[in-house]
């Protein structure tokens, strides 16, 4: 059992965590994890079939903080491991694996908000100090440690069996987990505020509210908002460009006029009419 617990935990660490390290490579999908766990536990066939079945179930799941769904990677790893141990099919494995997958997602949120979250400002401080070594170390260190903590779930789940694990995990107060989910949903506000600090100028600030309004009331997908934003940006840019050209012409004429006035002054000795004011 210890061997199985370690190997499954390692697979979860390297696939579910690994797809965060090697971004966007889909290593943590059920279709990959299923056969991998199957191979490690000596039943590739079951792993392959369960992986395919789970991939179909989880195809549409893209986790964005919602506590309602299960984390596909953890759920698949455990489902395959239990199915092989209990010599059962999907019907046996899924009812055990899905609840742990759901709790797994909550634990993931917990780690994300409470453990990794506060380091955002540490990164800022390090950047201010120009401390590159520490930034790199923290960047990798946070990855390794948060996914190590996460992979303890499959480790204990297999070592102590599913019911015991579920009972222990259920001991975390519901309100705290819920509160952290609420906080996780609100925390992007800080990131948005920092972007606004960069982009905000009083003369264009109304556009922020335009963007908010469009999505809030018309539920337009982000891509349509983007195209519209670009149209507005181009129109405004064209007007600014015309103004720029106009300004250039005016300054050219002004310097020309100034030269003329100077000539006139030399010729007409103090007879100056207030020509200059016209251009100001």
């Amino acid at each position: 059992m210890l061997y199985q617990a370690i190997i499954v935990a390692l697979i979860v660490w390297l696939t579910v965590g690994g797809q965060e390290l090697l971004g966007f490579t889909q290593l943590g999908r059920p279709i990959v994890i299923g056969p991998l766990v199957g191979l490690a536990l000596g039943d590739l066939k079951t792993g392959l079939l369960l992986g395919a079945a789970l991939e179909t179930i989880f195809m549409g799941v893209v986790n964005i903080g919602g506590a309602s769904s299960a984390e596909p990677g953890l759920a698949s790893a455990l489902a395959v491991a239990f199915a092989i141990n209990l010599h059962g099919g999907l019907g046996v494995a899924l009812p055990i694996a899905i609840p742990i997958g759901i709790i797994g997602l909550q634990i993931k949120t917990l780690i994300y908000v409470l453990f990794v979250g506060p380091f955002a400002s540490r990164f800022d401080t390090l950047a201010k100090q120009g401390n590159q070594k520490q930034i790199v170390a923290l960047h990798y260190g946070l990855w390794a440690s948060q996914w190590f903590i996460y992979s303890l779930i499959p480790f204990f789940a297999i070592l102590f069996g599913s019911t015991a694990t579920q009972e222990i995990l259920n001991m975390i107060p519901k309100t705290i987990v819920n509160g952290l989910t609420v906080a996780g949903n609100l925390l992007p506000a800080v990131g948005m505020a920092m972007l606004m600090k960069i982009l905000w100028q009083n003369n264009i600030s109304v556009y922020y509210f335009l963007g908010f309004l469009i999505v809030a009331y018309f539920q337009v997908p982000l891509i349509a908002v983007a195209v519209m934003a670009i149209v507005i940006g181009v129109v405004s840019g064209q007007r600014d460009f015309e103004m720029h050209q106009l300004n250039k012409k005016v300054t050219e004429q002004k310097s020309l006029a100034a030269a003329n006035v100077q000539n006139a002054q030399v010729a007409g000795a103090g007879n100056d009419i207030e020509d200059d004011d016209f251009f100001d």
Partner: peptide, 10 residues
């Protein structure tokens, strides 16, 4: 401008 609209949307 594009950025602010997108930040509002996001």
């Amino acid at each position: 401008i594009v950025g602010l609209i997108m930040v509002g949307a996001m």
